[in-house]
Every structure is written in structure tokens, then in C-alpha cells.
Amino acid sequence: MNKKITNKTAWAVIMSMVFVGVFYPLFSPYNAADFSFQPLMSPSQAHPLGTDEMGHDIFSTLLAGFRVTLGIALAAAVISTFIGTVMAVICAYHKNWVDSLIVKLTELFIIVPEIVVLLFFAALSKPEVYNTIFAIAFFSWSKVARIIRAKSITVIEKEKIQYTLLLKGSLRDVLVKMWRELYPAVATMFIFQCSKAAVYESTLAFFGIGDPLAKTWGRMIRTALNYEGIFTDGTYLWYLLPPVACICIFVVAVSVLAFDFERE
């Protein structure tokens, strides 16, 4: 009973966040790129969250942040889950040195924290949204690969897949045949990856890496912290805390969902 309620709440939260992300221009009072307002205004009827030190309306920026942040998280999660799944099936398909090489690679990403490699990659590449997505996707598939690999190794022994192998089925055929068995695990991993990608994105932005024009929540936190008086004049209440709250709510909702999936 209790489980159902938390699960439903998590779904509702995520869906409404995605809804805001898609339709934010309908709710947004101003254009997020408009910086013609008086800087550092306190919240008022006209500006629900005040304005920042450049004269942007913070509420509009926050709403625009839904689309960019969720977009990056989803795109990176799709790609990394895909890479991870393919790697896992390659492991199960080949079994020889290819398998052990990929396993060594995934272990390497435990030994060197993913985020450090990711930071390295993202800092070297051009500051564009696509590079952020690729950086996250390329270096966060190891967990997917590890877990799906364990699953694939048992699944590949099934008769129908052994049959495909006997008919000299290619990797693609095997992947297609295995998909139905792997699907639940892949879906769980995808949800995990969403939360991970959102965390990584905000971390990158927090380090000042990534497209400076993409106003993600992480970037908002960074700009808020860059403003000198943030902690001393009380502006953090409407400048820093809203994006912080958004990230926390999103990530927690997603992980609640993922753990629920995992239990099933």
C-alpha cells in the first residue's frame, strides 16, 4: 500500500516536471534570455522569484531550465543505456578476450571515478550542449554494462537464442532475440541512468564546464554562487534554493522509481 503511494507520487512528480519542460513557454512570464529588468529585485507579483544580478527574471530562467536539464538527462541516459546494453550483449556473444577486455574497462571506471574522466573529457571539448551529452553518455555506461552482462550471460543460454546462434545469427539478430528478456533490466537501468545523468550534468555545470548559455539548474546554481553577496544579503532564498530544490526533487523521484522497478 505504502509502496504504491510513493511510486505514484514519484511518477506524478516526474511527469509534471516533463510537462513543464515541454510546455514551459505557456507558464513563463518573460523570455528567459531577456535581461532588461532591474537587477537584484526581491520577489514580487511581477517577478515571483525576483531577478538576478544581470537582470534576468529568475522564475523564467528556472522554467527554461526544466527543458534543458531534463533534455540533457534523457538524451544522455538513452545513449549510455544503449552503449551499455550493446557492450553487455557483445560480452555474452563473444565470451573470449573481447568479454574480458570490456569487463576490465568497466572495472576501470570503478577505479577511476567516472566523474573525473567525464570532467576531463568535457573540459577538453568545446563548451556545447552536445558535447556535455556525449561526455556523460560515453563515460557512464559501465554500470549498465556490468548489470546487463550478468543478465545476458544467463539469457543467451536459452534455447531460442542458442538456435539463432546455430543459424550463424549476427550480433544484431542475437540482440533482437534477447531484447524481450533483457527489456525489464534495461528499463530499470535507464531510469538509474536518468538520475545519474542529471547529477553529472549539474556537477559539470557546477565546475563551470559546459555551454554557458544553456541555463540548466546546475548552471543556475553556479551563477548564484558566483554572485558575491549570495549568502549575506538573503538572496539565496529565491536565487539559489529553487534550482537546488528542483534537482533534489527530480533526482529523488527518479531514484524512488528506479528502486521500485529493481524490487520487481
Binding site: S195, V199, S202, T203, F206, I221, V244, I247, C248, V251, V252, V254, S255, V256, F259
Partner: peptide, 10 residues
């Protein structure tokens, strides 16, 4: 678990 998923820097 919920606490664990929040980014450390936040």
C-alpha cells in the same frame, strides 16, 4: 537511499 541520490555538492 533517497539521501544518497542527491548530488554531493548540493
Amino acid at each position: 537511499m533517497a539521501l544518497q541520490s542527491i548530488p554531493v555538492f548540493v
